[in-house]
Design a protein around this nucleic acid. Structure first.
Ligand SMILES: [Mn+2]
Ligand SMILES: [Mn+2]
Ligand SMILES: [Mn+2]
Ligand SMILES: [Mn+2]
Lengths: 224, 224
DNA sequence: CATCCAAGTTCGGCAAGACTAACATTGAAG
DNA sequence: CTTCAATGTTAGTCTTGCCGAACTTGGATG
């Protein structure tokens, strides 16, 4: 049962549920799902019920939502499509990293398996997308642990940027401007709880930068 | 009002109605439309009514279907998308000319205007797709007159292949095998009405080839 | 431990796009 | 000029995906 048997909307739900727990452990809720999908909670409730009937996830009323192995496999397939497409748009069509998410969000439902494999081949089987997110292999790689959000990191020593959330294009443009991209190293100077600011210094640069709540939430770093 | 405001189905109807009169003058009928869209005639009737209400075509019950200027503009936009995508798939992703039609049929609804322009740029503003069909420019070029189907051509002198219908992938593979592609020159040896065969010789080759009804219908040639 | 409210669910309805079955129109053949 | 078959239309129904309104649940608060 290939991913293409599902509706676009079902594909997006599965992808969203899977990615929700890729970088953090908090389980996904109906309300968050509704926000991310741009629909009302009642719509999500209905949709979840249908996905459950199809055996793609488990869910008791008012309970937690969890993907079955079948649902997870489809989700990984969609994540692979999304990230390969983003990479393709940057590498082959000269898109900026802030422009690719919305385009990929639509294309991921339209391209054939054949096209995805040709893109993968053309790009030399890339393992990370333009935002640093891992691209699952054709069989389905697990996700990467051990990274934390900048806003939760201790101010000691140098850390490496692992990935940056691709949700907000304007924020991505700002990160480009200041040179904050995946694989860049930086030092956390200070966490300021009440101003919701994180002060950092990019390695090799002098000046400090203050990042607000949203920004320091979007950046994931690791000590290694 | 950009083409993206229309549903996929509306986009396909307009494109189909426009292309129906690109190479021949016979007006499109509900039945033919139903066949090409893969739906029932009643579905077409309903859809036509909606497109009429949107001012995209004119149609009196049991009468002919004709695009308004607005409908025609959207149709040309879709044709441009379809043919640029086909060209892109061949040139950049190494598809064969028999593989691109179905992929483009889906992608044409999913890519953004931005992506289409980037593809156009990347390809150097191509003017014909892999099947020889003209690619309308961004503002909307008229179609090419003066070509006729091989089955209707007189057996005298050399003719040039202008375009080949992309509807049947298996037929396209056969044409590849025998070297019959756009811009190739050939001589028509004989039209055999009762066997529905057309005998041709590709220029620079010795042996004759018999083409059946469907094949000689799909190939459009010109004397010039 | 009773209360209350945010989170979640159910229900009825709507629009798009498809179908079948039944009906209407046209025009070609007799 | 009539007939009738092919072509086209209408009416009713389904499914998917969405909505708002009304209802239920369960955990935090006092
Ligand atoms: Mn999507
Ligand atoms: Mn990404
Ligand atoms: Mn299409
Ligand atoms: Mn073509």
């Amino acid at each position: 049962m290939p991913v293409s048997d599902l509706t676009n909307s079902a594909q997006d739900y599965l992808k969203l549920i899977w990615t929700a727990t890729e970088w953090s452990a908090t389980p996904i809720t109906v309300t968050v799902l509704a926000e991310r999908m741009g629909v009302r909670p009642s719509t999500v409730s209905d949709s979840i019920k249908k996905l459950k009937d199809q055996g793609l996830l488990t869910h008791a009323p008012y309970g937690t939502i969890e993907l079955t192995p079948a649902g997870s496999a489809h989700a990984v397939d969609m994540v692979r499509r999304h990230r390969l497409l983003e990479t393709f748009l940057v590498q082959v069509l000269g898109y900026g990293w802030d422009e690719v998410h919305d385009e990929a969000e639509v294309l991921e439902h339209a391209v054939s398996d054949t096209m995805i494999e040709r893109i993968d081949q053309r790009l030399g089987h890339p393992t990370r997308d333009p935002h640093g997110d891992p691209i699952p292999s054709a069989d389905g790689q697990p996700h990467r642990p051990g990274a934390i959000q900048l806003c939760h990191a201790e101010p000691e020593g140098e850390v490496t940027v692992v990935r940056i959330s691709d949700a907000d294009p304007a924020m991505l443009r700002y990160f480009s401007d200041i040179g904050l991209t995946p694989d860049v190293k930086l030092t956390i100077q200070k966490q300021r709880p009440y101003t919701d600011a994180t002060t950092i210094t990019l390695s090799g640069q002098q000046k400090n930068v203050d990042l607000g709540q949203a920004a320091s939430n979007a950046v994931w770093v690791t000590n290694s």
